[in-house]
């Protein structure tokens, strides 16, 4: 089943979000317009707006008002991707040239800054201090997550705890904030906000672990980029942490992190990790977070959105690529 089918009942509202995103990135600058539209057309799952909308169903739902939260979280996600592509020197994303490749790094910086600024401007329609505290905290934490990722690159001595701390900030926190903001903006009660915030956090953790597993287990075609590219960039992920000291893996891993690995050895390293218990072990950790997410859903008030949240969580944590 495709992810979009799981939230097909939100289709008309997501169409509103899509139109609103196009309005939000509209600029008096020809160049920024082009760069932003380039990003919009690249598409994406729009999973963060979906979490905002579903979470808003636990309060007084109105697409006209909730779009002011759903649009900014997607803009923040888009902006961080544009800047990430500069950091990673990425040539393509989702099969299209990145902004930094099509123009240059500086234009990518301005495009990201423009999107961040528009996101903040957009959400100020919401006169709720707590919502702004949540979002601003999220933006700062996202950066700290990225900073940690750069700091931890090539560091073989890091722990599972370091990894979890990093992915919390890198991925889980924005999904958690999306859920919390949807609930806050619709006036849901505090207990519901708390459950949704935790749900988003757990789903985000589970999702990122699966993402890191897939980087190793998928083919280049499935990923749309070379398999193992995270590892090649020096990012040590959970499966790698579980097997980093295995005698058949340690020397190859060292070569990989030194950047001296041959293509044959790289394939051998990926095969060794794929065939090890590390993948299953990492899947178990992802599953543990998924179960925690599902437990949070159980505690939410009865509502049609409960089932959708549950299904999306299951889909995101069980996906094959």
């Amino acid at each position: 089943m495709k992810l979009k089918l799981l939230y097909s009942d939100l289709k008309s509202d997501l169409d509103v979000i899509e139109k609103e995103l196009a309005t939000a990135v509209n600029s008096s600058s020809h160049l920024l317009n082009e760069a932003s539209l380039h990003l919009l057309l690249a598409g994406g799952k729009r999973i963060r707006p979906v979490f905002v909308l579903l979470s808003a169903k636990f309060g007084d739902y109105s697409i006209d008002s909730i779009k002011n939260v759903a649009v900014p979280v997607e803009l923040i996600h888009m902006a961080s991707l544009v800047h990430d592509d500069v950091i990673d020197d990425a040539e393509t994303r989702r099969g299209r040239e990145t902004v930094k490749t099509q123009w240059n790094n500086r234009v990518a910086m301005y495009t990201g800054d423009f999107l961040f600024a528009r996101a903040i401007e957009y959400i100020t329609v919401l006169e709720n201090t707590y919502a702004h505290e949540v979002l601003s905290h999220t933006m700062v934490e996202l950066c700290i997550g990225e900073i940690l990722q750069i700091e931890d690159k090539h560091l073989i001595d890091q722990t599972v705890r370091d990894y979890l701390r990093r992915i919390k900030r890198k991925t889980a926190i924005l999904i958690s904030a999306s859920c919390a903001l949807g609930a806050i903006a619709s006036g849901a009660d505090e207990k519901t906000i708390r459950h949704l915030k935790r749900f988003g956090y757990y789903v985000g953790m589970s999702f990122q672990i699966i993402d890191d597993i897939l980087d190793i287990t998928s083919t280049d075609e499935q990923l749309g980029k070379p398999a193992g590219s995270d590892l090649l960039q020096g990012n040590i992920t959970l499966p790698v942490l579980y097997v980093k000291n295995e005698p058949t893996i340690a020397p190859l891993l060292k070569e990989m992190l030194d950047g001296s690995i041959s293509e044959d050895n790289k394939q051998q390293l990926l095969t060794e990790i794929r065939n090890s218990e590390a993948i299953n072990h990492a899947k178990q950790v992802s599953n543990m977070y998924l179960q925690k997410a599902l437990n949070e859903v159980k505690q939410l008030p009865a509502n049609s959105a409960k089932k959708s949240l549950q299904n999306i969580a299951l889909f995101m944590s069980k996906r094959k690529f």
């Binding site: 950091i87 990201g112 800054d113 702004h132 601003s136 933006m139 996202l142 950066c143 750069i150």
Partner: peptide, 17 residues
């Protein structure tokens, strides 16, 4: 790149508080 994003987040956080 991250410094710019971090400082920008800090201004938002400061005014939100």
């Amino acid at each position: 790149v991250l410094a710019g994003d971090y400082y920008s987040g800090r201004y938002y956080q400061l005014l939100a508080s």
